[in-house]
Design a protein around this nucleic acid. Structure first.
Lengths: 187, 187
DNA sequence: CACCGGTGAGAACGATCGTTCTCACTCTGC
DNA sequence: GCAGAGTGAGAACGATCGTTCTCACCGGTG
């Protein structure tokens, strides 16, 4: 099981280190050591740290949204319940060991002023998340403004959980979302 | 007007640089140059970069919350309007040039894994903000759960405005807050 | 066998960082 | 006038980083 392809091993190591400790705090040598490779091989697959960071963010975005969508789609059919399931998924995420907030927000705060690629990755990630929620909201017959409100609640719960280390922010956001949906005309 | 006390000048320079570019991206020499001082003087007032970072966060927390409280207290008496005025103040903040999100969230993402002092500063800042909103909500006769919901909306709008560079997140959060308050029994 | 492109392991390089030190100079008190 | 404490200006130091280079070694091909 140690025989995965090198690119994946490097990305796995980079993701754990970058997310867990911050990008600037992790040197390329730490990535090399954690991936059990030689320096030559690392730079062979990612010719600079910047490109490794981009690849890390890109892969994480895909995984994150796929995991969310898969969880939500597994939920019973009612679109309104699917919307609320988003917050259940967030709550599970918050409770994972090593949870340290949104990787894109973190990297944006760290490198946003200096790396346009990081800014683009963060915007893309958040825009896609917003679109996903907008799609669910439309299916539930909620106005598009409500989708924006639900996005803000989700975003706020991520930040709150990260700062206070308290996963209950997800349940709070879920309750607020439920109230907003109830205050709004159904389809 | 150039004759402020050295500590203030250093903190002013540090705040602009740390907030605008990230803490790790700014070297002590940049702080020295921006404050127009000598290295000896900088280290005379802040014996390490870590202590300068702490002082920067501490002072920013006080200023930020004082500015918010002052703006809100200037608003007409209705407590419910005061609560909504919080989002107006956020909208003005978001529209300021150089806005780059919450300094505490940014520094937490950058240094949270390595600096307990930064974690403590961020938690304190967010806890105080939450308490402030809880006080306003109580005055408005809203249940304490509603205060939590309003906090999540505010937090989410900060993140959203930072990521997308779009100050309208404040107005969206305000509208969501208004709906939540309307859906809730008054005093 | 001799050759050669590629690898592993890690040293080396140049830049940058946080922090301290040097040294000439300037005040102040006697 | 002069010793001595403190300052300005910046060089120096040791550590660390991203990246590249060295070099002994290995496998396959003529």
């Amino acid at each position: 099981m140690e025989q995965e392809d090198p690119r994946t091993r490097i990305l796995d190591a980079a993701e754990e280190l970058f997310y867990g400790q911050g990008i600037q705090a992790v040197g390329m040598d730490a990535v090399r050591a954690a991936s059990g490779m030689t320096m030559r091989r690392v730079y062979q697959h990612f010719p600079s740290k910047g490109e490794l960071v981009e690849a890390y963010l890109l892969r994480r975005d895909g995984r994150w949204r796929a995991s969310l969508a898969e969880y939500v789609s597994r939920t019973g059919g009612d679109p309104r319940e699917q919307l609320l399931a988003v917050y259940d998924w967030l709550g599970r995420w918050f409770a994972e060991p090593g949870f340290r907030g949104c990787a894109f927000v973190n990297s944006l705060g760290e490198l946003g002023a200096v790396s346009p690629a990081v800014v683009a990755a963060a915007r893309h990630h958040k825009a896609e998340f917003g679109s996903y929620l907008a799609g669910l909201a439309q299916a539930a017959g909620a106005p598009s403004a409500t989708a924006v409100h639900l996005t803000l609640l989700a975003e706020g719960s991520i930040t709150s959980a990260a700062v206070h280390g308290d996963p209950t922010a997800a349940a709070d956001a879920r309750e607020a979302a439920r109230l907003l949906l109830a205050a709004t005309p159904g389809r």
